[in-house]
Design a protein around this nucleic acid. Structure first.
Length: 858
RNA sequence: GGACGGUUAGCUCAGCGGUAGAGCAUCCGCCUUACAAGCGGAGGGUCACUGGUUCGAACCCAGUACCGUCCA
């Protein structure tokens, strides 16, 4: 077949989109549950329907793509299943903002029309990330694309809700929950982000005279809702007050002083105000002492009742209350600014308000225990294992999960209320009784994404997909969401699938950071857009940059320079292949070919590298995989073998073309999972094959391992490097040819004269040959006619540096060998190694001293 | 306050008991017919600190300091 002439530079934009489209249209990424091959499956952590691709996704996806592409090449029936979640709060916010621009609120539309609007938004502008995933090259099975609000997945949600409800694991209760006054909804603990913020600490005197007590608070306005003051029962300072009442300032109410074990007597004054309706700890104290709960704030954060404060926002009420207390002489101390931990809504960053509210909860205790046990007994392996402790810390101390959200976009809670207060949970295909009204709330988005590993495979139906691909082989995600999302999938998976966990392995990666290891943030201005890199450097370079830094569980620092470096690497592959093709490289049988030492060396190295790459892949060591292949490709294939091959081709060794083809074929296949586009282009050119996507993964051929050839080429490299150093020190231009006499007879590199002369640009000595410099390198005596006086100073410097190195070496070795303890206690092979080193050093010293002595003076 | 991780070349990181490594950056020299997105060469580190274990410690142990992350 004819092979296309390649341009001198790789242009990713020319090949990426057509390649991707061809892969999809050929159906390479489709998974067949009916196949008899070994299954391998990964579900994509569903991005938000509102989301766009960021570097975190790019890393996550590059890893999954590398794993599934390799698995596919290994002949496994590989499923990588894509999809999105409906992102309740985020999506509702987006659509509400659009409505606001039209001067409308969701209430103007009503629930049904609003939800219709959200679907319309999704159809028009949701899921941008899917197009971006294609740019990155994600080999997902698009025919199995799922969305958490789809009919099937909604059915899964309703099914598991009903099951949990019937098992008594879902209940409704009035509790203190995290309330976002902007999103107007409850949040679970994990949707709250804590930060150290500046606030104030105000100490307030309650009561008067002997019967007064000082409490401190950072939320002064909540005193309006206080229903007690609590002290520790054994705190002698206050024992006389326990059981009495004090007057609550500004309100005229009298509130009791109660004794509670949970009060820390060493904190502040040792007395705490108790606001059961607005603080989780106070709520518990209130429960223990049967205190009333007074709600003093509405759901938008405005103070309700209490005279002058009515209608004030909580942050306006705070100074107003403090001012009123001050006027009343109640303020004992004020600390401002006062640093303390404040919770914020993870979606909109508004300060979260603890609020007493009637909500639905999952009793997680039995589920969390099972989730912990699955990892403890090894059914699911967390990688790297150090992170398992964090997982245990989380699942072993999990609080009940608040799952109701006061939103319209999401899975509506399948609970209906009857006219007499009846409560029924309605399963799929069931009808609520006539006259019943459905709960208005929807479920937390995590409730549906917690079902992802099996709802996407068709659960609750017993589908072939579920049978074949569950449990999934590996979950790839960042360690930052190990606690909530992973734990939730584990809980639901074990619960729904008869104790079978959803993944065999959880492989965790870190966060993507900038070149100084700083977190990427909009406010810091160091955010890199992966699409910008894909445009400028190519998808392969973007992926390679991320994978090259991806050590298990640790963060990845990236910069533009490294992306450029990755692009350069792709270009190197391009040009190496171009060279090979220009020289007729092709795949074929090596059987019976007159392989040279160089051929046997590169083939041997290929086996070693293949084995190392496999091991690293199996351990999710993507940085190592990348590094191994980078060095093999660049340093060994390009820098050495191609140069040696030039000589062989010139000598008419035809089989060299096959060796070139063989090595490139394997190298490109090994690299394909990391850099799919450039390898596809080149592999097709070299082999004429259909696609590297469906090519087989290289396997180690132990027969090609050749330690003898490796040693021989190592010696050759040593010699060439030494002579290059001499040339460089002597200011001989790389391209400048000089005459040299080489004492190769009897050395390990005796058969490589042509290669040595070619690599070093050394001509055979002519009649006028006059050695102006001579030295020994790798056991070979080298005499060079530099066609003029040599730079004696440079030469002396070079030799003396080597001599100093050899002397240091000799001293170190002698030190060890002179130590009785070392000789008697160190293993024999170590002692032998040191002895050999001492002998080598001694020989080097003698040789170098002689060379220095032989230098012309001056 | 608790837990975990980190501290190795200018930057980002490997190495985890037997001669300190890589990429990028730096310096010098080269357009040598695959590649200047390249080629050849060079410089650069009391492996945070203090003790301990060991014939031998960047590596194991203890403590200290600083940084980071999560939880409270």
């Amino acid at each position: 077949m004819t092979k296309p002439e390649l341009p001198t530079q790789y242009t990713p934009a020319d090949v990426e989109t057509p390649s991707y489209e061809r892969w999809v249209s050929e159906g390479y990424f489709g998974a067949d549950p009916g196949s008899s091959r070994e299954p391998y499956s990964i579900v994509l952590p569903p991005p938000n329907v509102t989301g766009v691709l960021h570097m975190g996704h790019a890393l996550d996806h590059s890893i999954m793509d590398a794993l599934t592409r390799r698995s596919r090449m290994q002949g496994k029936e590989t499923l990588w299943l894509p999809g999105m979640d409906h992102a309740g709060i985020a999506t509702q916010n987006v659509v509400e903002r659009k409505l606001a621009a039209e001067g409308l609120s969701r209430h103007d539309l009503g629930r049904e029309a609003f939800v219709e609007r959200v679907w319309q938004w999704k159809a028009e502008s949701g899921g941008q990330i899917q197009g971006q995933m294609k740019r990155l090259g994600d080999g997902v099975d698009w025919s199995r694309d799922r969305f958490t609000m789809d009919e099937g997945l909604s059915r899964a949600v309703q099914t598991i809700f009903k099951k949990l409800f019937d098992d008594g694991l879902i209940y409704r209760a009035e509790r203190i929950i995290n309330w976002c006054v902007r999103c107007h909804t409850a949040l679970s603990d994990i949707e709250v982000e804590h930060s150290e913020d500046e606030g104030e600490l105000v100490s307030i005197r309650y009561g008067s005279g002997d019967e007064s007590i000082v409490v401190a608070t950072t939320r002064a306005e909540t005193m309006l809702g206080d229903t007690a003051v609590a002290v520790h029962p054994s705190d002698e300072r206050y024992s006389h007050l326990i059981g009495k009442t004090v007057e609550l300032p500004l309100t005229g109410r009298r509130i009791p002083i109660v004794a509670d074990e949970h009060v820390d007597p060493s904190f502040g004054t040792g007395a705490v105000k108790v606001t059961p309706a607005h603080d989780p700890n106070d709520f518990e104290i209130g429960r223990r002492h049967s205190l009333p709960s007074l709600t003093i704030m509405d759901e938008t954060g405005l103070i309700t009742a209490h005279g002058p404060f009515e209608g004030l926002d909580r942050f306006e009420a705070r100074p107003a209350v403090v001012a009123a207390l001050r006027a009343d002489g109640r303020i004992v101390a004020e600390k401002r600014p006062y640093l303390h931990s404040v919770g914020h809504c993870s979606r909109c960053k508004t300060v979260v308000e603890p609020r007493l509210s009637l909500q639905w909860f999952v009793n997680v205790q039995p589920l969390a225990t099972a989730a912990g046990d699955a990892v403890r007994d090894g059914r699911t392996r967390i990688h790297p294992p150090e992170l398992a402790k964090r997982y245990f810390d989380w699942v072993d101390d999990m609080h009940d999960w608040c799952i109701s959200r006061q939103l319209w976009w999401g899975h509506r809670i399948p609970v209906w209320y009857g006219p007499e207060g009846e409560v029924v949970c309605v399963g799929p295909d069931e009808e609520a009784p006539e006259g019943y009204v459905q709960d208005p709330d929807v479920l937390d988005t995590w409730f549906s994404s917690g079902l992802w590993p099996f709802s996407t495979l068709g659960w609750p139906e017993k589908t072939p997909e579920l049978e074949r691909f569950y449990p999934t082989s590996v979950l790839v995600t960042g360690y930052d969401i190990l606690f909530f999302w992973v734990a939730r999938m584990m809980m639901f998976g074990l619960y729904a699938m008869d104790g079978r966990p959803p993944f065999r392995v959880v492989a965790l990666h870190g966060m993507v950071r900038d070149q100084y290891g700083k977190k990427m943030s909009k406010s810091f201005g160091n955010v890199v857009d992966p699409l910008d890199w894909i445009d400028r450097f190519g998808a392969d370079a973007t992926r390679y940059t991320l994978l090259r830094g991806a050590n298990p569980g640790s963060d990845v620092a990236v910069s533009e320079e490294w992306a450029a470096g990755s692009r350069n690497f792709c270009n190197k592959l391009w040009n190496a292949t171009r060279f090979a093709l220009m020289n007729g490289a092709s795949v074929g049988s090596l059987e019976g070919a007159p392989l040279t030492a160089a051929d046997r060396w590169i083939l041997s190295r290929l086996q070693t590298v293949t084995g190392q790459v496999d091991a690293a892949f199996d351990d999710f060591e993507f940085a190592k995989v990348s590094d191994l292949l980078y060095h093999f490709a660049w340093d060994e294939v390009c820098d050495w073998y191609l140069e040696l091959a030039k000589v062989q081709i010139q000598e008419g060794l035809e089989h060299t073309r096959v060796v070139l083809g063989h090595v490139l074929d394997a190298l490109l296949r090994l690299l394909h999972p990391l850099v799919p586009f450039v390898t596809e282009e080149l592999w097709r050119a070299v082999t004429g094959g259909e696609s590297v996507v469906v090519a087989s993964w290289p396997v180690v051929d132990a027969r090609l391992t050749d330690p003898g050839a490796e040693k021989e080429i190592l010696a050759l490299q040593e010699l060439v490097t030494e002579v290059r150093r001499f040339r460089s020190d002597q200011g001989l231009k790389p391209g400048q040819k000089v005459a040299a006499r080489l004492g190769l007879a009897g050395t390990m590199v005796a058969g490589h004269e042509a290669a040595i002369r070619s690599l070093l640009r050394l001509e055979a000595p002519g009649e006028s040959f006059n050695a102006t410099a001579s030295f020994t390198a790798a056991g070979v005596s080298v005499e060079i006619d530099t066609a003029g006086a040599i730079d004696v100073v440079a030469e002396r410097k070079r030799l003396e540096k080597d001599l100093a190195g050899a002397r240091k070496e000799a001293a170190q070795a002698a030190g060890k060998l002179g130590n009785e303890q070392f000789l008697s206690k160190a293993p024999d092979d170590v002692v032998a190694k040191i002895r050999a080193r001492a002998e080598q050093a001694a020989a080097d010293i003698a040789r170098l001293e002689a060379q220095i002595a032989a230098l012309p003076s001056g």
